[in-house]
Nucleic acid binder design. Structure first.
Lengths: 156, 156
DNA sequence: ACATATAGTTGATTATGTCAACTATATATT
DNA sequence: AATATATAGTTGACATAATCAACTATATGT
């Protein structure tokens, strides 16, 4: 299993390499948003009620970083911020129409990229790829929670 | 397959989320190098003869960005730059002892993280995860070359 | 020998994030 | 009810890392 871990680490690095630094960024760039902004958009769409804390965690920035990101998205007309009804301290982030359609456009690009790759793969391989990746991510998520990784993000 | 592509796109985004934005960066930080510098280190180790162009492409920055990155790595004593023998214009980047051991330390951290996750997975699932991921990346790489994606990076 | 292409560097600037101090709201304690 | 404390988010000053455009230096085609 030691060897498997080494292999997997390399594979994950490669995934980040192909679809992270080079892939994603280039896809996004046509749309003129940064990767932090992209992650924030994604977070705002995923979470039903999306606070600044959620943004900060999803984009892996401090809460002040989250403030800047959302401020930029608001300037670009992609997101919107309003005070929570229940708790006046928290601030709910929602996407505008433009924000939603932009996010979908970017995600479609990634999806199309996947489609090209999947089409060149064996059908059985496609199936186990998705099953095993799902299982992997599920386990990773569980482990993170178990390890108490999901601490609140504060200023250091 | 359309649906599979959508699922896969989401899964890949999640991988980048867990091991990219939040995971990797935090691992690196203890070692005080940026993610661009990390990618440059990796590129320098992978490529047998690593030019600034390779660095730029691997780190997804412009060539001037690559210059800055390598300058920083040289200052930190992690990399070394010298003129190519065959072509005086090109500049070969190599890692110092320190650079190599740092890169290995970081990669070990990722490996250990994988070990924790793998340990919690079913052995059969572990196996197909690695097999299918390998196949996926291999196909992705082939497709990129076919699509002529590996263009030279210039200043826009 | 001269024009053009390619590899890399540099000065000025921009983009994105951090830190620490702050405001505002909520919750607990007496 | 008054006060202390915790929590959510914002802001000013600053750091870092990247870009762009202009540059130097070497190589290649005619």
């Amino acid at each position: 299993m030691e060897r498997q871990a080494g292999q997997l680490a390399g594979l994950v690095e490669d995934v980040m390499h192909y679809f992270g630094a080079q892939g994603m960024e280039e896809e996004c760039c046509g749309e003129k948003i940064s990767s932090g902004e992209f992650r924030a958009l994604r977070a705002a769409l995923c979470h039903d009620v999306c606070t600044m804390q959620h943004i900060a965690k999803s984009a892996a920035v401090t809460k002040s970083g989250a403030t800047r990101i959302i401020a930029r998205l608001e300037d670009k007309g992609l997101a919107h911020r309003e005070q929570d009804q229940q708790d006046g301290r928290v601030c709910c982030v929602t996407l505008t129409e433009d924000g939603q359609s932009l996010l979908h456009r970017i995600e479609d690009q990634l999806k199309n990229k996947m489609l090209v790759i999947l089409a060149a793969m064996d059908p059985a391989m496609r199936k186990i790829l998705i099953i095993s990746l799902k299982s992997f991510l599920q386990t990773a998520q569980d482990k993170k929670i178990i390890n108490g990784y999901n601490v609140d993000i504060v200023n250091k």
